[in-house]
Design a protein around this nucleic acid. Structure first.
Lengths: 161, 161
DNA sequence: TTGTGTGCAAAAGCTTTGCATGTTG
DNA sequence: CAACATGCAAAGCTTTTGCACACAA
């Protein structure tokens, strides 16, 4: 599958996109910003700002939370990451370059997230926009439930012990 | 339409439900709890915890934020109110007794919320639950967009001036 | 060089919690 | 009268901000 090679390919592309975005907006190309982008695209699936920050620190990058948050914002602006609000204090991000639109199913026990896609959402979106006279720009559909039952094992550290 | 009479009717019912819920769970029937319930069912549409608190204070009720939050939680537990997370710092509640399931369309300029209902959501929910082996307990579908363009006039006080 | 980005820590905003007091059952 | 709910303010948690220094352009 040449997964590694494919990752490098993608990385080159997203760095180029980010680079352009920074230039267009007269923002500086700092090593921190690119390090964060790279870190995100080497990860899989969803993550939150704190986990990303910790992971950067662990890898001996010198970044602060402020920079992580700031950069995530920038990346969201140029559609390289998507920000999801799965709950009050459950904000997660995911890389979005080359991904098709999808929605999420979240385990209420372990916070595991799986993606799904259904064309009917788009239809509903269009229909309701027309009907209610809104210009719908985006949506968020989250299903919540329990996954296969073995999920307690992977429960996040937000739970006591 | 005897709207007022209807409101009183509903109020009686929800108070009875709440009363039972409190008894069943060996919780106390305090005047604060019932005052909050009543306040909620006299209001229309969506509100947030702070607005409810302020409104209670304005009406010279003696309640604290802690009690408001606590009671909202209780009411959510017995399905008398629904809690919605429309954004990171945009938690809203609504009374839910006697209401049918619906989803929301939120104006990204003025936070106005309108409701809509589409049977296809239920179908998707069932299908995805089966497909992905989740027991889906609930969902949240929010569409975001701009309403008719006159919405700036009603923009919430969260905006400067 | 020059002004923007960064790191750090402190601040902000919403919600929860601890403690003493008041009140329900 | 004993336990639980309340009020108040202080603490928590995630995210943002202010300031001085570093560094990209």
């Amino acid at each position: 599958m040449e997964q590694a090679a494919h990752t490098e390919e993608i990385l080159k592309e997203v760095k180029s996109i980010f680079s352009n975005h920074l230039e267009m907006n007269q923002l500086r190309k700092t090593p921190e910003r690119f390090a964060i982008l790279e870190e995100i695209y080497r990860r899989t699936d969803h993550f939150d700002a704190e986990a990303l920050y910790i992971h950067m620190k662990t890898q001996n990058y010198r970044v602060s939370r402020a920079t992580v948050y700031n950069t995530l914002e920038l990346l969201a602006t140029c559609d390289l990451v998507k920000k999801h609000q799965f709950g009050k204090n459950l904000t997660q991000f995911e890389k979005s370059y080359g991904y098709k639109q999808h929605d999420h199913l979240i385990c209420i026990d372990c916070n595991k997230v799986v993606e799904f896609c259904d064309p009917r959402i788009q239809q509903i979106k269009n229909m309701m926009g027309d009907l209610l006279k809104y210009q719908v720009t985006h949506h968020s559909l989250n299903m919540y439930g329990k996954c296969d039952g073995a999920c307690e094992k992977t429960a996040k550290a937000t739970e006591p012990q």
